[in-house]
Write a protein that binds this DNA or RNA. Structure first.
Lengths: 155, 155
DNA sequence: GGTGAAATCCTCGAGTG
DNA sequence: CACTCGAGGATTTCACC
């Protein structure tokens, strides 16, 4: 477990709110010099705490208005690696979670419309040894923006 | 539906890979001037296609090693707003998806360990008129890094 | 962790097709 | 209307204290 102190957690929190924040702005926020902040962020990347930076997109505005989760159940002989590989090959798949219990997976999908959703689910059913599916259509969503897990007194 | 052309999609794709990419780097990539790229990105923010930028964190490295999805079923009289409000009040909750069907919700949770998970699930059960839960423990996950939905020829 | 200087980048006006 | 150019100011980056 790497040592990540309170200032590091505050930097992570600031970057969660705005990943393009400048080092100077963060420096003023945490009371360190710009160079010290940059060194800390560089270090957080090196030790793998920060895995990257990304943009948040409103996909509905791009015409990808439908979001769904599909639970897939596989034959007992299907290896996990195969489950992931088949699902990731479908471009509409945003994320794949392998799940404890019935050797299942939960798949996050984004599509244009319901017809498109049906196509994608059908494709998932056909790929590999899928023995059952259950699809949850997302009506609305909320995501935590800042802070998140690293509460003060973290690690 | 706002007009987002191929270059905009390429910019979004580049920013999905690395949200801190410089405008100059993206300019070279898409063959425009730095100023033109900045104006496009500014515009994508204004029209709401870009909702923000954020850092990607490996929470396991911060000691938050357990990830789970909990399906909550509510009494028929519970309004959606109440479902969201009660769940978002729990700090371990990362995201709340309201789901079509049985007036359910799917809740993404991140916790330190299994004991912690049990506490959080218990807390969710007690809040509001929850009539049933089912928790999916995440063993592994994969997330699409780049491009995603906006395939060439988008919208 | 701080400082300072050089390289790079961002920003915004004005001008062009 | 979107793009390019160019100059000023801010930011990043790195060696050294």
């Amino acid at each position: 477990m790497p040592d990540v102190d309170d200032i590091d957690h505050r930097l992570l929190s600031l970057l969660r709110e705005d990943g393009r924040r400048t080092f100077s702005e963060m420096a003023a926020e945490v009371g360190l010099s710009v160079a010290a902040v940059k060194r800390r962020v560089d270090r957080l990347r090196e030790i793998g705490v920060i895995t990257g930076f990304t943009v948040q997109v409103d996909y509905a505005k791009l015409g990808w208005g439908i979001e769904a989760f599909t639970e897939l159940r596989y034959a007992g002989t299907t290896p996990v690696s195969r489950i992931v590989r088949t699902a990731t090959g479908v471009p509409e798949v945003q994320a794949v979670f392998t799940i404890a219990g019935d050797q299942d997976s939960l798949i996050h999908i984004r599509v244009r419309d319901l017809g498109h959703l049906q196509q994608v689910v059908d494709r998932l059913r056909r790929t590999g040894e899928v023995t059952g599916t259950k699809t949850l259509l997302v009506l609305g969503s909320w995501k935590r923006d800042a802070a998140g897990p690293p509460l003060p007194g973290g690690v």
